[in-house]
Amino acid sequence: MKNLPVINLISATIIMVFFPSCAGDGWGLDEYGNELDSLSAAPSDTNGTPPNVDNFEIIQNTIFNSICAIKCHKSPRPKKDLNLEDGESLNYIVNVPSEGKPLMMRVKPFDPENSYLVWKLEGRDGISGKQMPLNKTPLEDSQIELIKNWISMGALP
């Protein structure tokens, strides 16, 4: 036992010397660490309707980027496996089963009342966990309306 502190110190030094090169070189990845060629496109518009770019861009920029993806719903460890970063969010919400209520989609196109994202933002009865954003002021009604409208229009990219 007498030599253990020395052995441990040597072990720790070895770890510290060897490990600090483990950060990825990022080859073939986007800035969040996802494979560039696996970045699936957002749900396609099967009805031939022109995508409502402005609507979703506003949501992404003013809500997801500004509130949700600052600390929690972001790579590389998005909370509840829900990444709301720019370029990622649609893949994680549209027609993706929610964790809190797996029978509900996070976003069900054309159906905001049955989209779990809306339930969580409004803090409705029946949600798992707390109203989002966690420990922050709830979104303004106009912001939630924007999301509901976007879903009503088909949740297009």
Partner: peptide, 23 residues
């Protein structure tokens, strides 16, 4: 105190490409 943290975000991608660490 010295703390070493390593995160491998996706086991399908080699650690050398997407590894994250904090000392």
């Amino acid at each position: 105190k010295i703390t070493y943290n390593l995160f491998n975000p996706n086991l399908e991608i080699p650690l050398g490409r997407d590894g994250q660490e904090r000392i």
